[in-house]
Simulated assay, not measured.
Amino acid sequence: MDQFGEPVRLLERRGYRSERIEEILGRNFPAYASRVWAQPPAGPRDGTQGAPRMRLTVDPVYGEVDLAASAEELVALAGAVGAGDGLVGAAGTADGDALTGVGVRTAAGPGVRIEVDTARRIPVISGDPGARELLADNLRAMAAAEDGGHLPIDHFPEHPYPVEGSVSLVVNSPHGGMPAS
C-alpha cells in the first residue's frame, strides 16, 4: 500500500520541491500519529525525534497561550520563527484540551503577530524577518537559561516586536519555575 503516494502527488502539483515534501511528511507524522491513536508512538522523547512533549494550552479566562517545551523543542521553534516557515508539533491530549502545535509564516511588518487559529488548533506566529529573529533569539535564550523562569510575550508600546492585538504567549523555561532570589 502506497499511503504517502497521494499526498506526495498533491504537494508536487502545488509546486513543492522533493526536499520540502520530505520535510513536511517526515516532521509531521509523529504528531499526526499521536493524535490519531491518542498515544505517542514509540521512540525517543528528547525533543528531536519521536513524539513531541511540547504542551500548549489556552487560559480560558485571559486567553493567553501557555507554552511548556524541552530546550530542544524551543530551539526548533526558534529555528522555524527565524526562518518564517514551519509547523512545530505539540503533544495533544485524548480529551482535546491542548493546542496541537505552533505554526509560523512570513508577513509584512513591522512586528510579530501571534493569533490562535481555532480551526487548526494552533497558535500562528507571523511577522517581518527582523521582528521574528528577535523573538527567535529570545526563545533560544529561554532554552539555554538554566535558572528557570518564564518569558511573557505581550504587546506593550515599549516592546520591540509583539504588535497590538496579538495573543499573549507565556514561554516556560524547560529548567523549571522562577529563579531563586
Rank of each mutant, 00 (worst) to 15 (best):
R120H: 06
A141W: 14
A141M: 08
T106E: 11
M142H: 02
L151K: 04
A69Q: 02
D137Y: 06
L67I: 13
D117A: 14
V163G: 10
V163D: 03
G96C: 07
L87Y: 14
L99M: 12
E64K: 09
A69G: 00
R120Q: 10
E73S: 01
P157M: 04
V61G: 08
V65E: 02
G103W: 03
F156A: 15
R120P: 00
A107Q: 08
A131L: 11
P129N: 11
G130K: 10
R35L: 15
P44R: 12
W37A: 12
Y161H: 08
E72K: 07
A83I: 04
M54Y: 03
H150S: 15
R53H: 10
A141C: 02
G50F: 09
V58E: 12
H150M: 15
T93E: 15
S126T: 12
H159D: 12
D137W: 08
P40H: 06
L135T: 00
R120F: 10
P52Q: 07
G127P: 07
A38D: 07
L87N: 03
G130M: 10
G96M: 07
N138D: 15
S70I: 03
D147W: 11
E133H: 10
A145T: 09
R140I: 00
A98H: 11
V75T: 08
E158A: 15
L56G: 01
A78C: 04
Q39W: 00
D59S: 13
H155P: 09
Y62W: 13
T48A: 12
A131F: 07
I125D: 00
L139C: 01
A145N: 13
V36F: 05
P44Q: 05
L134Y: 12
A94P: 08
A91C: 13
G148I: 05
R105D: 03
G89V: 03
A80F: 05
M54P: 09
L135A: 05
Q49D: 12
R45N: 03
A69N: 00
R53C: 13
V88E: 02
L74Q: 03
I122L: 14
